[in-house]
Simulated scan of single mutants.
Amino acid sequence: MNVAFCNSNPAKPTSDHPVPGAAHSPGRDADVIALIREAGRTEPALATTYTDARHRADRTRIEVFTSWPPGTLREDLPTSVDIHAALCTIDVYTTLTIERGWSPDRVESWWTTTLARELLA
């Protein structure tokens, strides 16, 4: 299960892939992720599982962003990590796919475009 579903890899941004690997939809994991998060409200072990996964995702984002040349990010590192985390949530994915009828591919495309616009200088 990939709780941090809007992942990046350490590749550098290019014109073809402005935020490499930035948009990976959770697909079928979405329901499991939501279940773990909701169950965590009453089950401390599941809350820890969800929180730990979010922290691992932040560490990955930091690793990726710091591997890029200085001046690549529009904002400082903490703000860039926050922007990425705020946009790439199970709630955004669910709203767009379930409530708005977007395909997972469309969400991934939107994430890539939006992250490039918001993160890159």
Rank of each mutant, 00 (worst) to 15 (best):
E99I: 01
P104H: 04
T89F: 01
R106W: 04
T89S: 07
G101R: 10
V107S: 06
W110I: 07
E108V: 09
G101S: 15
I90D: 01
A116I: 12
W111H: 14
T95G: 15
W111V: 08
T112E: 04
D105R: 08
W111C: 02
R106Y: 09
R100T: 07
V107F: 01
G101L: 01
A116E: 10
L87G: 06
C88M: 06
T114A: 08
P104R: 05
T95P: 06
E108R: 13
W102Q: 02
L115I: 03
L115K: 07
T97E: 01
T114E: 13
W102A: 13
L87T: 07
S103M: 03
T114G: 04
T97C: 14
S103G: 05
R100K: 13
G101I: 00
D105L: 07
P104F: 13
G101V: 02
T114R: 12
E108Y: 04
R117H: 04
I90G: 09
T114L: 13
T113P: 00
L115C: 02
W111T: 02
L115V: 05
D91P: 06
T97I: 13
R117D: 14
W102C: 08
G101D: 11
T94I: 07
T95W: 09
T89K: 08
L115E: 11
D105P: 02
T95A: 15
W111Y: 10
P104V: 11
T95H: 13
E108Q: 14
L96W: 14
L96R: 12
V107R: 02
L96G: 05
T113Y: 03
D91W: 06
T95R: 15
P104I: 11
V92A: 13
W102Y: 08
D105G: 14
R106H: 10
S103P: 04
I90A: 01
V92W: 00
P104S: 15
I98L: 07
E108I: 08
T114I: 05
W111R: 02
L115S: 12
E108L: 03
W111K: 05
D91N: 11
W110G: 01
V107L: 05
S103E: 15
L115T: 10
V92T: 15
V107M: 05
D91M: 08
V92F: 13
T89M: 03
L96M: 15
P104C: 07
W111E: 10
T94Y: 03
C88E: 00
T113V: 04
R100A: 14
R106S: 11
R100L: 15
T113R: 06
V92E: 11
T94C: 00
I98W: 01
T95I: 13
G101W: 02
R117M: 13
L87V: 13
S103C: 13
C88Q: 00
C88R: 01
Y93D: 11
W110R: 07
L87C: 11
T94L: 07
E99V: 06
I90P: 00
T89H: 00
I98V: 15
R100D: 05
A116F: 10
I98M: 06
W102L: 11
T89G: 00
T114Y: 01
T114H: 13
